[in-house]
Amino acid sequence: MSGDTAKIVMKDVHKSFGSKHVLNGIDLTVERGTSMVIIGGSGTGKSVALKCILGLIHADSGSILVDGVETMGMSDRERNAMMGKFGMLFQGGALFDSLPVWHNVAFGLIHGQGMSLKQARDIAVDKLKSVGLGSQVANLFPAELSGGMQKRVSLARAIATEPEIIFFDEPTTGLDPIMADVINNLIVECVKNLGATALTITHDMASVRKIADHVSMIYEGKMIWTGGVDRLDDSGNPYVDQFIHGRAQGPITKHAHMA
């Protein structure tokens, strides 16, 4: 076990869609067994950055290491072998609408790990309970759930296989404050108890303070500040200050938001 290699390292990662530069040299290091939170305005490329690590979007240039292994230019087969390490909560939920809730949660266990339906279903019901959903939800279809419930099912799916690295893309958006806190606890538990490495995107400052070990802020396609969560309030960075206090006035202008 190479205990000292970081779990995820991004170096100078660039990504454009057509003429639109979304990632402009992202640098990010996430240490093993820690929880990193990325903050930043909407449309600044946070989701794109996560998808680049997963290989769902191919970065144009730069280097992305997972467990010290370069993933840029990996073959489909190598990438598929690596996928088992990851769990991902998609921003939009991305539940399979043709499958009942329990099968969504059990999907990775059944198809990725070859578990029996019965066993996978039991685990799925358990995971649903941990995100605050009763067993009566298990047989419903995703379309029959509210947005917040779908998000929680999606979260249960992301952690069902107990992956080493879990990405949470806006896990508490659309949840009431109490349920948001349940989810925050769950994320902390994944990191503390299961030893997972978590990379979370959120706008929810209460969530940041609860789950983060480290915080990184993205602005105009770059990480402009990274530090421990305890340094968030005296970061000395005017962009970070403006963001965490949610002020309309400051260096982050409306114009930059649109760009």
Binding site: K51, L56, M83, M88, F90, A94, D97, G108, T161
Partner: peptide
């Protein structure tokens, strides 16, 4: 959902 399939191996 297609991305989700990929992440679930």
């Amino acid at each position: 959902q297609i991305d989700a399939l990929t992440t679930l191996s």
